[in-house]
Deep mutational scan, measured.
Amino acid sequence: SDIKVHVGDITVELHNVSEEFARLVEEALRLGLNEEQAKEWAHKALH
C-alpha cells in the first residue's frame, strides 16, 4: 500500500510497501539517515 512517513519536517511517500517496511524507514529517518539511505536500510533489514 501507499504510506506517508513523517519524521520531524521530513515527509517520505512510499508506494506499494508493507507496513513493516514503512516502519523501518521511519526508524532509519529517526536515526538520522536521509530518505535514500533509509529506504536502502529498510530493504536490507527485510532480506
Results as ranks from 00 to 15, higher is better:
H47N: 13
Q37A: 12
K44A: 14
E13L: 13
H43M: 10
L46M: 13
V17F: 04
A28F: 06
V25A: 01
H15V: 12
E40W: 08
A22T: 05
N34P: 08
V7Q: 05
R23E: 09
E20D: 13
A45N: 15
A38P: 00
V7L: 08
V25W: 03
K39D: 01
V12D: 04
H6K: 03
K44S: 15
S1N: 13
N16V: 05
V17W: 03
H43F: 15
W41Q: 07
E26K: 09
L29D: 00
H6T: 15
H43E: 13
R23T: 11
L29W: 01
S18L: 04
N34L: 05
L29V: 05
E20K: 10
E40L: 13
L14R: 02
S1D: 09
L29N: 02
D2V: 15
E27Q: 14
G32A: 01
V17Q: 06
H15W: 08
L31K: 13
E40Q: 10
A42L: 02
G8C: 05
L14S: 04
A22F: 05
E36F: 12
A22P: 01
L46R: 00
R30E: 06
H47D: 13
E27S: 11
L33V: 03
A38Q: 00
V25F: 10
A28C: 02
A22L: 05
F21E: 04
H6V: 15
S1T: 15
H43C: 06
A22S: 07
K44I: 05
F21Q: 02
L31T: 11
L24Q: 04
E13Q: 12
K4S: 15
E20Y: 11
I10K: 04
A45K: 14
Q37C: 07
R30Y: 15
E35S: 11
L33N: 04
G32P: 00
A38V: 01
G32C: 02
V7M: 07
E20A: 12
L31A: 14
G32Y: 01
E26H: 08
A42N: 00
L46I: 14
G32K: 02
V12M: 09
E27V: 14
E27H: 14
G32V: 00
D9E: 12
D9I: 10
A42V: 03
E27Y: 12
A38L: 01
L29C: 00
G8R: 00
H43W: 13
D9F: 09
V7R: 01
A22Y: 06
L24A: 10
F21Y: 15
S1Q: 09
S18D: 06
V7G: 04
V12E: 05
K4L: 15
E19H: 13
E36D: 15
K44W: 10
A22C: 05
T11F: 10
L31Q: 13
V5T: 04
E36Q: 12
T11V: 14
L29F: 02
V25G: 00
L29Q: 02
I3W: 11
L31C: 04
H15T: 10
R23P: 01
Q37D: 14
N16M: 08
L14Q: 02
W41H: 08
K4I: 15
D2R: 00
L46P: 03
N34W: 02
H43S: 12
V5F: 03
H15R: 01
E35G: 12
G8I: 05
V25N: 00
E36N: 12
R23L: 11
H47K: 10
A42P: 01
H15S: 09
E35R: 07
E26G: 12
A28N: 02
E40N: 10
D2G: 08
R30P: 00
V5S: 02
A38M: 01
L29T: 02
S1Y: 07
D9P: 08
F21R: 00
I10V: 12
W41M: 08
H43I: 11
A45S: 13
E19T: 11
V7Y: 15
R23Q: 12
K39T: 06
G32R: 01
L29R: 03
K44R: 12
H6L: 07
W41E: 07
A38C: 00
R30I: 13
D2C: 10
T11H: 08
E36T: 12
V17G: 02
E13R: 00
Q37K: 10
K39Q: 09
L29K: 02
E20V: 12
E36L: 15
V7D: 03
H47W: 07
E26W: 07
G8H: 07
H43T: 14
A28T: 00
L24H: 09
H47M: 14
K39I: 13
E26I: 12
F21T: 02
S1I: 09
I3V: 09
Q37P: 02
D9C: 05
L46S: 12
K44M: 13
K4H: 12
K39M: 13
H6D: 12
H47F: 09
T11W: 15
S18Y: 03
E20H: 12
D2E: 09
H47E: 14
E13H: 14
F21H: 03
K4G: 10
L33T: 01
S1M: 08
N34F: 05
E13T: 14
Q37L: 11
E26T: 10
